[in-house]
Simulated assay, not measured.
Amino acid sequence: MPHEHNDHCGHESHEHDHNHDSTELGFQDNLYLHIDRQNAVTLNSEGKASDILKPWHERLDENKYIESDADDQLIIRIPFTGSVRLRALLLKSGPGDQTPSKIALFANEPNLDFEDVSDRKPTQEFNVPQGREVGEYAVKTARFSNISGVTLFIPSSQGADTSRIYYLGFLGSWTAAKQQPIITVYEAQANLADHEKIQGMDGTWSAPGL
C-alpha cells in the first residue's frame, strides 16, 4: 500500500558554497525558501519530502534521500508559499538504474495520485540521464507562470526495483500571494429585544421563526 508523508520541519539556514559549477549561476533565483515544505507530500516513498528539499549547499549530500516503496513509482507534491514563475527543475537522483526513467511535471495539480495520474497530460516531461551531479531541466516558462505548486510523477526507474532521489530544487521568480480583503461582521453585544421569547420556557431565548 503506498505511503503518504506530510512533512513538518522547521526553518533551515539559507546559504551556499562558492564552487562555481554550472548550477551556481542559478543560485540567485533558487526557490528553496519559497517552498511550503511543511505541506509537501510524497506518495509510495520511504522518506519524507523534506529529505530531498534541501538548501543549496546540501544539494550534493547523499545521506538523506527518498526511495520508492512498493514499486519504482513515485509522486511528489510541492506547494509554494506564493505565486511562482518557474524557470527550471533541479534534480539529483540515482545511483545507476535507480535513476528515474523520466519526470512528468504537472502544474497546479495538488491532489494528483496514482489512480488518476494516467488520465492527466503532463505539463512537461523530461528524460533523466544517469549521473552523480545535479541536473538542471529548463521548463517552458509560459506553462509554469503564476503557479501555486507542482507535482512530479516518476513512472519507473531505469531497471531497478525502486527509484531514488537525493535532491529536488526549483529555479524561478516568486511573488507573494495576493491577500483577499477580510471583512469582519460582528455584533458588539447581543440585544435580547431582537429575539422572540418562547412561551412557557422562561429564560430560554430562540431566534425568530424557530
Score class of each variant (00 low, 15 high):
Glu46Ala: 10
Lys197Asp: 07
Lys92Trp: 05
Phe27Ile: 14
Asp119His: 09
Ala193Cys: 09
Lys121Ala: 12
Ile35Pro: 01
Gln28Asp: 10
Tyr166His: 11
Ser45Val: 05
Val128Trp: 00
Gln179Asp: 14
Asp161Cys: 01
Asp194Met: 06
Lys64Ile: 04
Asp97Thr: 11
Leu91Pro: 02
Ala70Lys: 09
Val84Arg: 02
Gly159Cys: 11
Asp36Lys: 07
His195Phe: 15
Leu152Ala: 02
Leu192Asn: 07
Val185Gly: 04
Gly172Lys: 05
Ser145Thr: 15
Ala40Tyr: 04
Gly47Trp: 04
Gly10Leu: 12
Leu25Gly: 08
Phe27Glu: 08
Thr184Asp: 08
Asp21Gly: 08
Gly200Gln: 05
Tyr186Gln: 13
Leu91Met: 12
Tyr167Asn: 05
Thr151Phe: 02
Gly149Asp: 04
Gly203Ser: 07
Glu46Phe: 09
Glu109His: 06
Lys48Tyr: 07
Ala190Met: 14
Ile182Trp: 03
Pro129Gln: 09
Leu192Lys: 06
Thr42Ser: 13
Gln158Asn: 10
Lys54Val: 02
Ile154Thr: 03
Asn111Gln: 09
Asn146Met: 12
Phe27Lys: 08
Val117Met: 03
Glu115Met: 12
Ala188Glu: 13
Asp71Glu: 06
His8Phe: 13
Gly94His: 04
Thr204Gln: 11
Leu43Pro: 00
Leu60Pro: 00
His34Met: 05
Ser156Phe: 04
Arg87Val: 10
Val150Lys: 02
Asp7Trp: 05
Ile165Thr: 00
Gly82Pro: 05
Lys140His: 14
Gly203Lys: 04
Gln180Thr: 14
Pro55Met: 03
Thr81Met: 12
Thr151Tyr: 01
Gln199Asn: 09
His3Tyr: 07
Ile75His: 01
Gln73Phe: 00
Ile154Tyr: 00
Ser83Phe: 02
Asp161Val: 02
Arg87Tyr: 10
Gly26Asp: 06
His5Ile: 15
Asn108Met: 04
Ala104Cys: 12
Glu4Tyr: 13
Ser93Met: 05
Thr42Ala: 13
Asp202Ile: 07
His57Gln: 08
Trp174His: 14
Asp161Trp: 00
